[in-house]
């Protein structure tokens, strides 16, 4: 099976994400005020805001790793609370983290193929420990993110930029409809960060995936994403196409005054 056939096998829905009155509180602290919005399939969205503004909370709610205090998340027409964790959820939504989260002492290829673990039976998984299964698919994904020559190296020996590329390749094999990224390039240097974001956005566009990423660099977000959402103290400040976000809105978003003390 090739990557291309994998991607075409999933149907697109017009609405990838729909939030209705979604909120989250940790004890007395409201991390996210009730929020309703929709994201169209294939849209690329960057979430901006100072640290502690609720970006990560929102992403964790979207990925189903965190339950909301109120409201609901609907992904491609299915409510997240009704989905079984594991394979079913993994087909809808996949996530990339700031720290890449690869298994450091197996090869880059094995890490990429781990994206197929939800699909493989246990026997196939075990055989794959010795003879990597679906190898052509894994190599194709590594080539697409530009690190095919690193396939046999242990993931822990790769540079930060290479590790994040491998994590993206793993997501290609998982092939979810929606890709979430939590500050995916915050631990990379500027040049590397630009390359990886360009790659991530291009891959999402090419394969018609919906991309929602929290970003810590405003410039990268404005340059590469369709739509920007500004969060501050858990409240949405703006939600606009990138071209309509003005400088003073961003200044107000990151203004120190009025930020929560626990941030």
């Amino acid at each position: 099976m090739s990557l291309a056939s994998l991607e075409s096998s999933r149907t697109e829905a017009a609405q990838a994400v729909s939030l209705s009155g979604l909120s989250k509180a940790y004890g007395p602290i409201e991390a996210l005020a009730p929020l309703s919005l929709t994201v169209a399939a294939g849209e690329t969205v960057a979430i901006l805001g100072p640290s502690g503004s609720g970006k990560t909370t929102l992403l964790l709610l979207l990925s189903g790793q965190l339950g909301p205090s109120s409201g609901a998340v609907t992904l491609v027409g299915r409510e997240i609370a009704q989905l079984s964790p594991g394979k079913e959820l993994a087909q809808l939504v996949g996530m990339i983290h700031q720290q890449f989260d690869l298994v450091p002492n197996i090869s880059a290829l094995h890490n990429v193929l781990a994206g197929r673990l939800g699909e493989w039976g246990l026997f196939k998984s075990l055989v794959s420990l010795v003879w990597p299964q679906d190898r052509p698919m894994g190599m194709e994904a590594l080539a697409r993110v530009g690190v095919a020559d690193r396939a046999e190296l242990r993931a822990g020996r790769l540079s930060g930029g290479e590790q994040q590329r491998v994590a993206i390749a793993r997501l290609l094999l998982q092939d979810p409809a929606i890709v979430l990224a939590d500050e995916p390039v915050a631990s990379l240097d500027q040049a590397r960060a630009g390359e990886v974001i360009r790659l991530l956005v291009r891959i999402a566009r090419d394969s018609g995936k919906t991309l929602i990423s929290s970003m810590h660099s405003v410039e990268l977000a404005r340059a590469h994403f369709d739509r920007l959402i500004g969060l501050r103290n858990g409240i949405v400040q703006f939600d606009l196409p990138s071209s309509q976000v003005a400088d003073d809105m961003l200044l107000a978003l990151y203004d120190i005054k009025g930020l929560r003390r626990e941030d």
Binding site: P85, G86, A90, Q99, L102, V103, H110, A114, L117, S125
Partner: peptide, 28 residues
């Protein structure tokens, strides 16, 4: 925990997480 969480979110069951994440990391 983080790499294991990543495997789980890719749809891997605990057995698969064991063979592809936990054991390789504990092996040395």
């Amino acid at each position: 925990e983080a790499p294991l969480r990543a495997l789980r979110s890719a749809g891997a069951s605990e057995w698969r997480v064991f063979w592809f994440g936990r054991l390789p990391m504990a092996l040395p």
